[in-house]
Design a binder for these strands. Structure first.
Lengths: 225, 225
RNA sequence: CGACACCGGGUCGU
DNA sequence: ACGACCCGGTGTCG
């Protein structure tokens, strides 16, 4: 079961290394490294050709919020969004905590807003969920997103033809419509968590989001005008 | 007539400066600065020993609203009110622009409303005026206050025993009565100015009001129920 | 319905 | 220190 090959996609010097010692030197201290261990050189080379999205192995450390590790009936998801400049290039980051493994997902867009990214992070999390018959416990630091669902804001806007209580139009209707329809079909619990307050997964989502936002050929957020 | 020495009592670095350029750097952006210009260093030093209360020197910069600087027959007054929470703790701030000097006044109350503070700011300004034989040009961002006087709302309510056209009682009768009696005896011009739009004196009034509202042992606004 | 204020909460940033 | 993205409300009037 020992890993003998380490592919470094993002690090001081990308490439394949045969000891963790060497790989570690390329990766430690590097901002947003991307690497993975394999048992064969072939697998490592294959992965290096398309390191696409970041996936990390299951982590068995207990986190104060991630009690899902012990509750195999619940899937915990963390989400975060960012927008450099706001509006500006943006991205979202997601961490899925399945009973047996952890997965990550992120994407960046050329021009968008912070709130669109927070919203889109949750939507993409739900659309990319691999297990759909368990309860979902979702964490985000956006009260815009949490209140939109838990306080019924979004449903009210929908009912009022996307007019808010102050008579002005509710924004990001495209994303809210999509989120509402996803929420209907799933068993989700929306939770707010304070941002940048030390939670490991929230912090990880933030890094994923920012890294994605800094990427090269970013997609367009078609809903942003 | 030229001022060659500027004493800064409250500023980034208190002391005496020989150019307005230097003094300005210590004073601008500082919370509640206290400073004054003098023609001799001796005078400046003397004042620095006992800068007493919040009095600031006349400012010779032309401001788009403070044309009083050129018209010695007019006293310009800026006023603002606030209420943290609304209702909640509140305060008012006043800037008096006399021909030769600027003075400030503020006060805070433990429980009140935004509109009571806007009203009380104007009332206290008129009660504390030091020169009463000149025309007064008053600026406030409250259309409640401005319209109450200039559109004759308050006079109409008074005539109708404080009942509005919709049959409900006009509020803050105590303050309106006081303001009406003050207005009768003075030559006042009421002007509306957009809030938080960059006007220096409006902004200053806002800061004074908020700071007063955040004070420790606040008075009671006896008229608020 | 409209107007002017007063705020309260969260995030994203420069 | 500043601003943008988003929301909820009250104080008051016509």
């Amino acid at each position: 079961m020992s890993k003998k090959y380490y592919a470094v996609a993002k690090g001081i010097k990308p490439g394949i290394y045969s000891t963790w010692e060497e790989a570690k030197a390329q990766v430690e201290g590097y901002k947003n490294p991307l690497y993975k261990g394999f048992s064969s050189k072939k697998e490592a080379e294959e992965w290096l050709k398309n390191p696409s999205f970041s996936k990390t192995p299951a982590n068995n450390k207990k986190d104060e919020y991630a009690d899902a590790d012990n509750d195999t009936e619940v899937i915990t998801i963390y989400t975060d969004g960012c927008s450099l400049g706001n509006p500006g290039p943006g991205g979202f980051g997601i961490v899925f905590i399945y009973p047996d493994k952890i997965e990550e997902l992120s994407a960046g867009f050329s021009m968008t807003t912070n709130n669109r990214m927070e919203l889109m992070g949750v939507i993409e999390a739900l659309k990319n969920l691999k297990i759909k018959d368990k309860k979902i416990r979702l964490w985000t630091d956006s009260s815009y997103v949490v209140n939109g669902i838990t306080k019924g804001w979004a449903k009210k806007w929908q009912k009022n033809n996307w007019i808010k209580s102050d008579k002005s139009p509710a924004l990001n209707k495209d994303l809210w419509e999509e989120l509402l329809s996803l929420v209907e079909r799933l068993d989700i619990e929306f939770n707010w968590i304070k941002g940048h307050a030390g939670n490991k997964y929230n912090e990880r989502c933030d890094r994923l989001a920012v890294e994605a936002a800094k990427g090269e050929n970013l997609s367009r957020d078609y809903g942003y005008k």
